[in-house]
Simulated scan of single mutants.
Amino acid sequence: MTEKIGILGKKSPQRTGVERVVNAPLPTVYGKFQAVGYLDHDRGDEQVALVYGDLGTDDVLIRLHSECLTGDAFGSQHCECGDQLDAALRAVVAEGAGVVVYLRGHEGRGIGLLAKLRAMALQAEGLDTVEANLALGLPVDARDYGVAARILEDLGVKSVRLMSNNPRKREALVDHGIEVAEQVPLLIPPCENNITYLRTKRERLDHHLPHLDAVVSSS
């Protein structure tokens, strides 16, 4: 058995360690968002929340998207990150309101870009994504979602419908005081280049990926 490892018009105070610095309109191919920029004083990271429509406080559709340069910017098929970001932005616009919190400092599940590339090189040699991180002496997942919870609180959000397949994101938000009313699957059809990676995420990281069943059974 495999081992399983607010209000946009007001500037927020610094009491939580996260300071709202700027609001700017951001027209995109998906629709017109408001880009709300934050400074995380605890870690020094600059963060951004893309807000669409009038949020309200309860059952807000959100995505906590971990930074992934290779997937988000370069269209890498090693992962499904770019497609998930695209789907989340489209879903928020279709909903009429919602937030995509883009979490910088989360590259490679928190190990950084160069370490992620080293891990990818090891995966090309046959290790899975968990084994590769451990072989480098790095944590399997070093991400922290406290800043995301504080950003949501600053935006006046009390409960969310979370677009994610990762149960740890739900657990983290709840631990930080944000109610998760629903976890909304964000399932991207796999391709030849990422099917092994996705299987590992399901089998060793507990991601809910039921759409892989058909692929697994036919392979």
Results as ranks from 00 to 15, higher is better:
H78T: 14
L39Y: 15
E179L: 07
E192Q: 14
C81P: 04
A172W: 01
D45M: 11
G110E: 07
R90F: 05
V215P: 13
M1V: 12
V51R: 10
P167E: 04
G126T: 11
T2V: 14
T129P: 00
P27S: 01
D128S: 09
A142T: 14
G44E: 09
Q34Y: 02
Q84F: 01
L89D: 03
Y197D: 06
E19H: 15
G53H: 04
T196M: 07
T196C: 02
V180P: 00
G146L: 09
G126V: 13
L39R: 15
R109W: 06
G112Y: 00
L152M: 06
H106V: 11
V216R: 12
E107R: 13
S12F: 09
E171S: 07
R90I: 08
G156V: 08
R161H: 04
V21H: 10
L61S: 04
V92L: 11
I178C: 03
Q77G: 11
V22R: 15
G110M: 05
V140M: 09
D83T: 08
A24P: 08
P189M: 08
P13S: 05
V51G: 09
I188Y: 03
G98Q: 02
L205G: 05
G53M: 10
L122Y: 12
D154P: 12
A214G: 14
Q77I: 10
E67A: 06
G137P: 01
A149G: 01
E3G: 13
S12T: 12
R43Y: 13
R168T: 10
I178G: 00
L114H: 14
S217F: 15
R20L: 13
P185Y: 10
E125R: 07
D213V: 11
T57F: 13
E67S: 05
R204S: 00
A172F: 00
L209Q: 03
E203L: 07
K4G: 05
A88T: 01
C68A: 14
V160H: 01
E3K: 11
R168W: 08
L138A: 06
A214Y: 08
L162V: 02
D72S: 09
E192R: 14
L198S: 03
L89R: 08
E46Y: 13
G9Q: 13
H211L: 15
L136F: 11
V48C: 06
L61E: 02
G98P: 01
V101W: 07
P13F: 10
R150P: 04
G6I: 08
D86K: 15
L61M: 02
L138C: 06
A35M: 13
G17D: 04
G156L: 07
A181R: 01
S219W: 14
P25I: 10
P210D: 03
P13W: 04
T200V: 15
